[in-house]
Amino acid sequence: MGMPNRKYADGEVVMGRWPGSVLYYEVQVTSYDDASHLYTVKYKDGTELALKESDIRLQS
């Protein structure tokens, strides 16, 4: 078993793309699913969504 190939840690605050949009919002990573390679993130309004790594970026 190798290390999970994840870029962002639980609790890390990053920018997540809103689905169907080009806009990124501040989100907190809450979990990562090794099987689906999706991150569960929480937006400031409390919305929780699963995002692909390509829809997440570090805060500038």
Rank of each mutant, 00 (worst) to 15 (best):
A50G: 07
L51I: 10
Y24A: 02
I56M: 12
I56H: 01
S60L: 13
H37G: 15
R57V: 11
L38V: 09
Y43I: 07
D33T: 03
A50D: 10
H37M: 14
D33E: 05
Y24E: 06
A35F: 11
Y32H: 02
K7C: 06
N5R: 04
M15R: 05
Y24I: 03
Y39E: 00
P4Y: 06
G20C: 08
G20L: 06
Y32N: 00
Y39P: 00
D55Y: 04
K7V: 10
W18M: 09
G11R: 03
Y32F: 09
D45W: 08
K7N: 06
E12M: 11
V29D: 00
L58P: 15
V14M: 02
M1F: 05
S54C: 08
Y24S: 03
E26W: 09
E53A: 06
T40R: 08
K7P: 04
R17L: 09
R17H: 04
D34Q: 11
A35T: 14
I56R: 00
K7E: 05
Y43L: 15
S60G: 13
V41K: 01
G11T: 03
A9L: 10
E12G: 02
P19Q: 05
G16T: 08
H37Y: 09
L38W: 06
K42D: 01
I56E: 01
M3H: 15
D45G: 05
K52W: 08
T30Y: 07
A9H: 13
V22L: 15
G46W: 03
G2N: 10
P19A: 04
L51H: 01
L38A: 06
Y32W: 09
L49Q: 07
S54W: 08
R57G: 07
Y43P: 02
M3V: 15
R6F: 03
R57F: 12
D45S: 05
Q59H: 15
G46I: 03
G16W: 03
Q59I: 15
S36K: 11
Y39F: 02
D34A: 12
G16V: 14
W18F: 12
M15F: 13
M15K: 05
G2D: 14
Y32I: 00
D33L: 05
D55V: 02
T30K: 13
I56G: 01
Y24C: 03
A50C: 14
Q28L: 14
E12I: 06
V27T: 03
D34V: 11
D33K: 02
G46M: 04
Y24R: 02
A35R: 12
Y43V: 07
L58E: 15
Y39M: 01
T40P: 00
G16L: 09
T40E: 03
V22S: 14
A35K: 13
V22D: 15
E12N: 04
E12Y: 04
G2K: 03
R6W: 03
A9D: 08
E12K: 04
S36M: 10
D33Y: 02
K52I: 09
D10C: 05
L23F: 13
L51T: 02
V13G: 03
V41C: 10
P4T: 11
R17W: 03
P4G: 12
K42V: 14
V22C: 14
Y43G: 08
V27F: 13
T30Q: 14
S60K: 05
T30M: 15
P4A: 11
Y24G: 01
N5A: 12
R6C: 04
Y39K: 00
L23T: 12
I56K: 00
D10K: 05
Y24P: 02
P19R: 06
M3G: 14
D55G: 03
K7M: 09
L38R: 08
T47S: 09
E26S: 08
L51P: 00
Q59K: 15
V27H: 01
M1K: 01
R57E: 12
V22M: 13
M1W: 05
K44N: 08
A35Y: 12
Y25I: 11
A50V: 14
E48L: 14
S54M: 08
D33W: 02
E53M: 03
E48K: 09
V14K: 01
P4W: 06
T30R: 07
L51V: 06
D45T: 04
V22G: 14
W18V: 09
E53F: 06
T40D: 02
G20I: 02
E26P: 12
Y8N: 00
G16S: 05
M3N: 14
L51D: 00
R57W: 10
E12A: 12
M15T: 04
V29L: 02
S31H: 12
K44Y: 10
L51K: 00
Q59M: 15
T40K: 10
V22A: 14
M1V: 14
A9G: 09
E12L: 08
K42M: 13
G2R: 01
I56N: 01
E26N: 05
D45M: 03
K42H: 07
W18S: 06
S36A: 11
S31C: 06
D55A: 06
L23K: 12
Y39D: 00
K7H: 07
S60M: 12
L23C: 12
V13Y: 13
P19H: 06
G11S: 04
V27Y: 05
Q28P: 00
L58D: 13
D34L: 09
D45P: 02
G11M: 05
T47L: 08
T30C: 11
E12C: 07
D34C: 08
A35Q: 13
L23S: 09
D55E: 11
K7W: 04
Y25F: 13
Y43K: 08
Y25P: 01
V14Q: 01
A50T: 14
Y32E: 00
G16A: 14
D33Q: 03
P19S: 03
E53D: 09
S36R: 10
V27D: 00
V13E: 06
A50F: 15
V27L: 07
A9N: 10
A35I: 15
D10H: 05
Y8V: 02
H37A: 14
N5G: 14
P4S: 10
L38C: 07
Y32Q: 00
Y43E: 02
V27G: 11
G46H: 05
E48R: 07
Y24W: 15
A9W: 08
Q59W: 13
D10G: 02
D10E: 06
A35P: 05
T30L: 15
T47H: 07
Y43M: 15
S54I: 09
K52E: 12
S21I: 03
H37K: 14
M3W: 12
R17G: 02
N5V: 14
T40H: 12
L51M: 08
T30W: 08
E53T: 04
Y8E: 01
G46L: 05
